[in-house]
Amino acid sequence: MTDAVRPPALRTDRLRAGLKRRYARERRFRMYGLLAIGFAVGFLLLLLGRIVEQGHTAFYT
């Protein structure tokens, strides 16, 4: 047996650790995406609210 061959237990441990990091990055990326969408919707609501607030007098005339 050569030194280049790793025992299977060490290889699976490294794979599990790599998958754990990958899934953590994926969760973080999804959270950033949801936060970005939330901010966009919030600013759109703010914009719409300001338009209605400043233009409501036009509906009375």
Score class of each variant (00 low, 15 high):
Met1Thr: 14
Met1Glu: 14
Thr2Asn: 05
Thr2Arg: 09
Thr2Glu: 09
Thr2Tyr: 04
Asp3Ile: 03
Ala4Arg: 09
Val5Phe: 13
Arg6Gly: 00
Arg6Tyr: 03
Pro7Gly: 14
Pro7Tyr: 13
Pro7Leu: 15
Pro7Trp: 15
Pro7Val: 12
Pro7Asp: 12
Pro8Arg: 05
Pro8Glu: 03
Ala9Gly: 05
Leu10Cys: 10
Leu10Asn: 05
Arg11Ala: 10
Thr12Leu: 10
Thr12Lys: 14
Asp13Phe: 07
Asp13Gln: 14
Asp13Asn: 09
Asp13Gly: 10
Arg14His: 14
Arg14Ser: 12
Arg14Lys: 15
Leu15Val: 14
Leu15Arg: 15
Leu15Tyr: 12
Leu15Gly: 02
Arg16Asp: 15
Arg16Pro: 09
Gly18Gln: 05
Leu19Ile: 08
Leu19Trp: 09
Lys20Trp: 14
Lys20Met: 07
Lys20Val: 05
Arg21Gln: 13
Arg22Glu: 11
Arg22Ala: 11
Tyr23Asp: 06
Ala24Ser: 03
Ala24Phe: 00
Ala24Glu: 04
Arg25Trp: 07
Glu26Met: 08
Glu26Tyr: 11
Glu26Cys: 08
Arg27Trp: 02
Arg27Ile: 02
Arg28Glu: 10
Arg28Phe: 10
Arg30Pro: 02
Met31Val: 12
Tyr32Ala: 11
Tyr32His: 15
Gly33Pro: 06
Leu34Ile: 12
Leu34Val: 12
Leu34Lys: 13
Leu34Thr: 13
Leu35Ile: 13
Ala36Cys: 07
Ala36Gln: 07
Ala36Glu: 08
Ile37Glu: 05
Gly38Asn: 07
Gly38Leu: 11
Gly38Trp: 06
Gly38Ile: 03
Phe39Cys: 09
Phe39Trp: 10
Phe39Thr: 08
Phe39Lys: 04
Ala40Asp: 02
Val41Asp: 02
Val41Leu: 04
Gly42Phe: 01
Leu44Met: 10
Leu44Trp: 08
Leu44Asn: 06
Leu45Gly: 02
Leu46Arg: 01
Leu46Cys: 02
Leu47Glu: 06
Leu47Met: 14
Leu48Val: 03
Leu48Pro: 00
Leu48Thr: 04
Leu48Asp: 08
Leu48Glu: 06
Arg50Ser: 15
Arg50Tyr: 11
Ile51Arg: 05
Val52Gln: 04
Glu53Leu: 06
Gln54Met: 15
Gly55His: 02
Gly55Cys: 03
His56Asn: 07
His56Val: 11
His56Tyr: 09
His56Ala: 09
Ala58Tyr: 15
Ala58Asp: 03
Phe59Met: 04
Phe59Gly: 03
Phe59Glu: 08
Tyr60Met: 13
Tyr60Leu: 09
Thr61Gly: 08
Thr61Val: 12
Thr61Gln: 12
